[in-house]
Structure formats: structure tokens, C-alpha cells
Design a protein around this nucleic acid. Sequence first.
DNA 1: CTCTCTGCAAAGCATTTGCACATTG
DNA 2: CAATGTGCAAATGCTTTGCAGAGAG
Lengths: 145, 145
Amino acid sequence: MDLKTVDAGLLQSRYRLTKQRAAVLRALGDGGHLSAETILEKVRTELPAVSLGTIYRTLDILRAIGLVQIFSFGGSAARYEAALDKHHHLLCTNCRTLENVQADGVAEIAAQIAATKGFSDVDYGLTIVGRCTKCAGKAGQNGAN
Amino acid sequence: MDLKTVDAGLLQSRYRLTKQRAAVLRALGDGGHLSAETILEKVRTELPAVSLGTIYRTLDILRAIGLVQIFSFGGSAARYEAALDKHHHLLCTNCRTLENVQADGVAEIAAQIAATKGFSDVDYGLTIVGRCTKCAGKAGQNGAN
DNA sequence: CTCTCTGCAAAGCATTTGCACATTG
DNA sequence: CAATGTGCAAATGCTTTGCAGAGAG
């Protein structure tokens, strides 16, 4: 993630650019899908006193500005990622690994449905779940929303 | 939902057919997207002593058998519905109303991506979020996973 | 200087679980 | 009967919040 964009995003907003916020964005810069807890650990390597509350508050702000995207799936902790390109998610229900994928055509389908129903300010997300190659044996879970 | 299917589903499984489980399925029969709490209220009209723990345990079993589908989105309580046809979800981020929609072409897209990545036992779900006609003014949320 | 942010600790909710008793097959 | 399910209540895990002091602009 481009730090100029990051700082600009915060500065242009009504929010202040603090070292905690910059650190959270830096933690997400590597492109992973991180839980709040994991982000806390990463941020604490530079700022040992940060609290989990601040992480959550920061992530919420960054989401509001559009710099961060949340992925939450059934029960366990939500995962956060830098909002770069539009993409979809491929989740292994066994090892819970999450991967980004591109999917042509979904945008049109979603836009068309939304238009039919009179929705505005539309966003959409396709989540594909299953067993990844490494987890190909084992008991199965159901449902992808 | 067809009760013959329901009972058969439970009987064919290794699970017992208790009055609580039948009642939960009946509560979902009307086709709504219900929270565990709402299901509890409905079930208590016939079985006043049922506990929330039992509702959750039952829903989990019914999901495992494939009779029930979960929809969970960012933070708030999950919603459960009878698993009838394959469909997708249209969610108003303001009033949180949830509607089922059909979407041609998504199955193929998802199957193709899953195949490329070597996934097995695949399921997928498209969630479209936005502001419904009734909520067309107001501040906006972000992200659809 | 003023207003916003942070750390801390406590609270909040949704969901899960241990245990003794009730029920099913 | 033996195995499984249930109610109750306590526990858990993730996330949010109130407050007093610290920091940004």
C-alpha cells in the first residue's frame, strides 16, 4: 500500500494522523488478512503500549474512509485487509486460509440485481468456500451466506 | 418447508428427532431470516421451557445435515433460514432488511474459480449490500466482504 | 489551547459449554 | 436400558465503551 495515499486519506478526512493509525496501516500494508489481535501484535513491535481498543477504533475509522475492508465469516474473529483493488474471497473451511481472487462478470450481475430492487450505494462480495488442496480429506462444513 | 423432508432428514441422520428440533424447523418454515433469539421466542410459544443453548445446538445440527443455512454479516447476530433453493442475499445496510435473490451465472463463475484453485466441496454466496428504497437518504457503511 | 485520541479496564452481546436430569429409540 | 438430548447457568471470545490523562493541529 502506498503510504502517500494513506496519509493523504487520513489528512483529507476529519481524522488526525497519529502514530497508532499510521502503524495500523503499515501493519496491513503487506497485504494479508489479519485479525485485530494479529494487527495488535504487529503494531506493538513499534508501539508497545497500544491497546486492542485502539486497534478496533482505528480499523473502524479506516473502514469509514475506505482504506480498509473487513471480512467476517461465521463466528470467528473478523479479518481486516487494505482496500486495494476490488476482489473476492476464497476461504478454506478447514484451515481457514483466505485468498483473494478476481471474478469477471460479478459486478454486472450485482449491479443488475441492485438496480432491479432500487438499491443505491451498492457494494457486493462473492465468497467461495470449500476444501483447499491441502485439506482435501476431512469432515465438511456448510453454507457460504 | 416440507415436514416429511424435515423429519426424514433428521431420522436418516444419526440425530434424534426431538420435539425441540421439530419446533425449530417449524419456526423456520415460514421462510424468514431469523436470529437465534427470534427463533427462541417462536419455539417458546409451543415449548415454553426451551433454552437458547438448545436453539444454538439444534441450529448447528440442522446446518450440518444441510437443512439450515446461516447468514452472518459484520458484527450483529447471525440469521438462520431454511435451506430451500440456492439463492443470494440483498442486504440494506441501514435497516438491515435481508432479501433473497436469484443470480444467474454466479454458479459458473464460482465453479470455475474453485476449479482453478483445486478446491473441493465448494459452496459460494454473493452478498449485495446497499441502501434500499426506503432508506435512500443517510450515512453510509462500507464493504461486502 | 482546544478538540480529538489513547490506554486501561470494565461492560456488552452473541455464542458455547459443563453438568445433572430427562428423553429417545 | 444405553445413548443422546436438554435446561440451566456459568464461561468464553470478540468487540465496544466510559473515563481521565496525553497528544495533534
